[in-house]
Design a protein around this nucleic acid. Structure first.
Lengths: 147, 147
DNA sequence: AAAATAAAGGACTAAATTGTCCTTTACCGA
DNA sequence: TCGGTAAAGGACAATTTAGTCCTTTATTTT
């Protein structure tokens, strides 16, 4: 449903939200190794996110990536649309061109509420809120570290 | 989540369930045009389904594909596993290696019930039951015809 | 038997996705 | 101001998925 690229990007941004700020920048290599993701590939994704102002960056020694206030107000949806040229989240699960309640595919009534909820979450919740919720809930989003 | 190949295959089998039997076989070309799917590609998929005994076929004039009693007892899951070498339906939505209730990704609690329901449906319901439900519910699964 | 029909099979091409690598640019600290 | 560091950028390679095309085989009809 989401490409690898997109998943990597989302995880990286969440990781940055939880672990970086202007005074604590993280290098692409470091993030990649924490998330266990191909580093050159992630670096490319981070560049895209940075040029789209979804994350911040600084060159040179002590440089790296981090999230500023504005970045924290972005949504997962912003990331998805930045990375995946055309996302397929709302496509019919069985590939029907037009699948809706009048003309539902066999799994429409299972898939529809899920997709709605998911899209709602992705579009409404900011990165900041998502990160906050994880901390509040004690949801240790270890990404790949302790697994 | 499912490949195109898989979606095409599922739609084709459902179409066969609703429109074919031993006395009314359907050619690959006909099915492909009804479903608006690339015909050579679908033909290849139908071969695979046939060699896996998920659908039946007959060569020569008047030949084509159809479902027999045994075929109707197969499940959508059988189709998925036949077509997609390794399906990714239960993978974490954000690509975490291990995503579960102890270590949930940010959308785990949205995705988990959906995936469970979907997998359950795919694994338990036979093609016959699915087709029957569609007829009962007046769910006109037009695939691509009237859309 | 011959012709037509349709699946079986497999080689091949195309496109998208995933990933690597190398060079350039900017920045910092000594 | 020079060396090192890390992002920016872009060319390139590899893999997977998608799709085409041509030949062979089996079956039916005439």
């Amino acid at each position: 449903m989401l490409t690898n690229a997109c998943k990597y990007a989302i995880r990286a941004v969440i990781y940055l939200a939880l672990n970086s700020d202007a005074d604590k920048k993280l290098g692409a290599k470091q993030i990649a190794s924490e998330l266990d993701v191909p580093q050159a590939f992630l670096a490319k994704l981070l560049r895209k996110l940075s040029s789209d102002k979804l994350i911040s960056s600084a060159k040179g020694p002590g440089g790296g990536f981090f999230l500023n206030k504005e970045n924290l107000e972005k949504t997962v949806w912003d990331i998805i649309t930045a990375i995946d040229d055309q996302q397929k989240l709302d496509d019919c699960f069985l590939g029907l061109v037009k699948c809706n309640s009048e003309n539902p595919c066999p799994v429409h009534y299972i898939a529809a509420p899920f997709k709605e909820q998911l899209l709602n979450d992705f579009k409404k919740k900011t990165i900041a809120v998502m990160a906050e919720e994880m901390v509040e809930n004690g949801t240790v989003i270890t990404l790949n570290r302790f697994i």
